[in-house]
């Protein structure tokens, strides 16, 4: 059963700001609701006001703007999976979105919502991190863009202030040779939260290589490893260095989904697997 609250579905951002400013108590923003309502059923959240953002026009947009992909705050995971744009140049996002919950839930769950819940294992983080994404945050007072790696501040905590709302994401468009892989440890082949999630991305032309890991620290971990990878040395040494970087930057725990020990192991294994998929060892 959900607690009592007041539901609004405004048609403009201004209205949202008004409500945010004038309402007492806790206010929650609703897009897919797939986390919010579950939390409310568990009584871990009891908002007094819920603002449905699905009526705001450009929140439902997904389009390329200059050298960036804009993903509106109301874009669902399945819309990402089905988007031609995404599948062409941002494939890793479609692969990541497919890892979020079950098909029916993905018809509601939004990419931005996945980030705003800010679970350590949220599947959309690693892929968006390695692509370099900015979070577009708006409020009555100011608009700002926050690099995604600065967005999460703790378990289920982020930089959003009470009067702020995420309008969408700007994902960097990399040159055409870029490719990314997302690997996830799960207990079943059906829907499951991530036990370990690792994304890797390479663009040879840009001399860019990055990894990002979920569910291995309080917040997702982003590592720009370009310098190591495109610097001096042979592949094996570089790989060792990368694995070392990964190990040093994570701090997993034991929970019902996996053990600390195994998370460390698998973050290494996935990093190696991804690297070998992104880069044939003999290539350079």
């Amino acid at each position: 059963m959900l607690n009592k609250f007041e539901y609004y579905k405004p048609e403009s951002l201004e209205k949202i700001f008004d409500i945010l400013e004038n309402k007492e108590g806790e206010t929650a923003l609703l897009a897919g609701g797939t986390d919010l309502f579950v939390d409310m059923k568990h009584k871990t959240r009891k908002p007094d006001t819920i603002i449905d953002i699905k009526n705001i026009e450009d929140f439902s947009e997904i389009e390329e703007r200059d050298q960036e992909l804009f993903i509106g705050a109301a874009i669902t995971c399945n819309e990402i999976i089905e988007s031609e744009l995404v599948n062409k140049d941002y494939k890793i996002l479609a692969d990541s979105a497919l890892e979020v919950a079950a098909h029916q839930v993905r018809n509601r769950a939004t990419v931005v919502g996945n980030l705003c819940t800010t679970s350590p294992g949220a599947d959309m983080f690693p892929g968006l991190l390695v692509l370099k994404t900015k979070v577009v945050i708006v409020s009555k007072e100011e608009n700002r863009q926050v690099p995604l790696e600065q967005f999460a501040t703790g378990v289920k905590q982020n930089v959003l202030k009470d009067n702020e709302i995420v309008k969408g994401l700007l994902v960097k468009k990399h040159v055409a040779d870029g490719k990314g892989v997302y690997l996830k440890k799960r207990r079943t082949k059906g829907p499951d939260l991530s036990g370990v999630g690792v994304a890797g991305y390479i663009s040879e032309e840009e001399e860019y290589l990055a990894f990002a890991l979920g569910a291995v620290a309080p917040t997702p971990v982003y590592l720009d490893l370009s310098e190591i990878f495109f610097g001096e040395g042979n592949f094996t040494d570089k790989q060792e260095k990368i694995l070392k970087e990964v190990k040093e930057n994570i701090n997993p725990i034991d929970d019902v989904r996996s053990t600390k020990k195994y998370r460390i192991k698998m973050s290494q294994v996935y990093t190696r697997r991804i690297l070998s998929r992104l880069w044939k060892a003999g290539d350079k």
Binding site: R187, T188, K189, G190, P191, D192, L193, D255, V256, R257
Partner: peptide, 16 residues
Amino acid sequence: LLTNTFTDYKVPSIAD
């Protein structure tokens, strides 16, 4: 009990 939802307590799906 730590495994008191289908989120935490997994059962086989059609994909398994």
